[in-house]
Design a protein around this nucleic acid. Structure first.
Lengths: 211, 211, 211, 211
DNA sequence: CATGAATGAGGTTTCATTCAT
DNA sequence: TATGAATGAAACCTCATTCAT
């Protein structure tokens, strides 16, 4: 992939036609599968195209280069997860802390586990500058949403909402990743869900300025 | 690097002579620097050798292949961190939960921050099967040490120590990573240290079977 | 080329299109020329590709590795020679020994001399395990054909046809090689042809169980 | 090994001291063993030195380069074989053709089989320009010796003694090689010996100008 | 003399990307 | 628009050879 020069990153054409959408979707799916099957180092554009059932040429019609393909795939996944978190946050403005936490944890874990294979596959992508930027951008969205929500807690305030959100979100991410990489058995996922709630709630109560 | 076939991973020769040790150390350091400077995809053995001030041939005298170089570097770092955690755990058997947490968090964060550049650099390595195995192995060591310690807490017991340790360790890892990737300003590191203690303590009190 | 591990040896894609066939043919021809020009040790895939007027990448589309290229080239040549011998044998079933010998010797020498440059070039290929196997396989074909033919000689039988064929074929091969390496002047080739007939005939008469 | 430039080929120092002789001998033996074990492409000077129980540096004290090592080894073997043939020829001046042939064939086959492993190993050496030259030189010695001997046959003359010798010697070489490569079982070697005599005798009688 | 660590040119092979069909 | 053969830069790794110890 080289030293990340200034290359276009956005998908080349917005898929408006139905056929295109199907093709692009197939390419994304193939990307995840290849990533999972052979790892990031052996992911080649030809292999992805093959798995997607199209030719390399076609792949390059929709993505200007390999980097953009991987980035788009990553973005797609992260966006889905963060959108779920944002939604949960918006819906819980003004609720009790406990309710908030339960909803957000549930939304996050569900979103991650819905396509646990993809989640795993993406942990395996090489994290270059661009990926880091993307992860940061998306992470910020999640933290902002959480901060906004936490600001509406009825009978408590938080001294440093941005940092508190960072702690919360990164702890959730860390624990979930650990469970995924440990195989994410149903039992573990159940435990994760429950204990993540405890962990977040305990943390928030510790840092809250009780009114 | 390909689909990780059966290739030797152990360093090729154990450096016994002083000069060799220096060389190997230089290669490790160069690896971190290159990783940080150009990212994992553009890390080439030639570049590492250059930066280390040796020839490629020399590099290959100590590491049978690129994979093993990266893996050894990763192992070196992880081992240092986990050893610190293990030591802290051992030293706090029988202490109060609060003391335990403070010591372990401090040990962990200190170890990570001591060479934050290396920590960052290693987040960026491609996580292939072998890396995953290594991370798992080392993670298990940390969790075992923590579980042993927590088993000696005076006036509380924990229903599922292995999972509790997993939650604790992965949350610590997640939060620390987030801070590192956010730039790890002194202020943030200070906050991290403090809030990680709160987070872990809160969590442990939630899941403890009070005696 | 290393210790010949488990690597694919078959040509990578069967050239069906006209253009491909031309390309592959050019690569074979280039292989022979390079072999002849610089010897087997200095034969590099790059050099072959250059001489063939294609890029290395193209070469590797048709041959998975250097080994397979050399092996295919060798096979192509040997097959041509042995096929000529087989044909001659088949055509002379039931003939007099003299006629048989003349035909077979002629067929063999002609086939070798038709592209004496290639014959020479191939003597120079490194004889690894794989080459040996190939030579054996092809040699067996020739010997079988000769044995079948000799079994139909009208008024003589042979006690050990397999070994007799081996002697015949290897002596032919040895003598022809010597002449080729001595420069294969027209005069020598003429002599070779005539004396090889004498040699083989004399031998067969010595070992025949006269009826 | 590269494009065979003008490099010294003679062994660097004549081993006069006992210790040197032992070392050089060990290196030759190691060369044959390595050739046999891993093939010519994977024969490295380091490997040879290792097997010989000396360091690379020492190897280079006795041989200026790899080429010269291989060439010397080849020469050593060929010389032994040809010397045996020369001796047999000299001893049979004036004898009957049958006696001559029997002696020479026996000498040749014995010499080859005495160290059949080495014979095999050397078939596998890459045949560069230099090797060809050596083989030619040594071959000429053998043919000359045979021609001289055949000139003394009592009651027959041969029209073209040089070519007749070439045929004889190359046929012997070809057949012997075939048997070696077929495994050189005792039975085959016995057959070879007997039939080679028949072959050579039959040939000589065919081409003799009977007196 | 022997050693073996260091060198670095060069060989093999891969793969992102293009473009004629 | 889709295809996939061709390209060639560049990566990984080897190994003949040297030379300081």
């Amino acid at each position: 992939m080289g030293t990340q020069p200034q290359i276009p990153l956005e998908p080349r054409k917005t898929p408006v036609q139905a056929r295109s959408t199907v093709t692009v979707e197939a390419i994304y799916e193939a990307t995840f599968q290849v990533l999972l099957a052979v790892g990031p180092d052996s992911l080649t554009t030809t292999r992805v195209a093959e798995r997607a059932g199209v030719s390399v040429g076609t792949l390059y019609q929709y993505f200007p280069n390999k980097q953009s393909l991987l980035l788009s795939a990553l973005e797609k996944h992260l966006d889905r997860v963060v959108s779920a978190v944002e939604l949960a946050c918006r819906r819980n403005h003004g609720q009790q802390v406990s309710t908030m936490i339960e909803s957000v944890v549930e939304a996050f874990v569900d979103a991650k586990m819905e396509r646990s294979d993809i989640s795993m596959a993406l942990y395996a992508t090489a994290v270059g500058v661009q990926e880091r930027a993307l992860v940061n951008k998306v992470g910020k969205r999640a933290r902002t949403a959480m901060a906004s929500m936490l600001a509406t807690v009825p009978d408590a305030t938080f001294a440093d909402l941005p940092f508190t959100s960072l702690m919360l979100f990164s702890a959730m991410g860390g624990a979930t990743r650990a469970v995924l990489e440990a195989g994410s058995s149903p039992r573990m996922v159940r435990l994760l869900r429950k204990q993540l709630v405890l962990l977040c709630r305990g943390f928030l109560m510790s840092v809250a300025d009780q009114a």
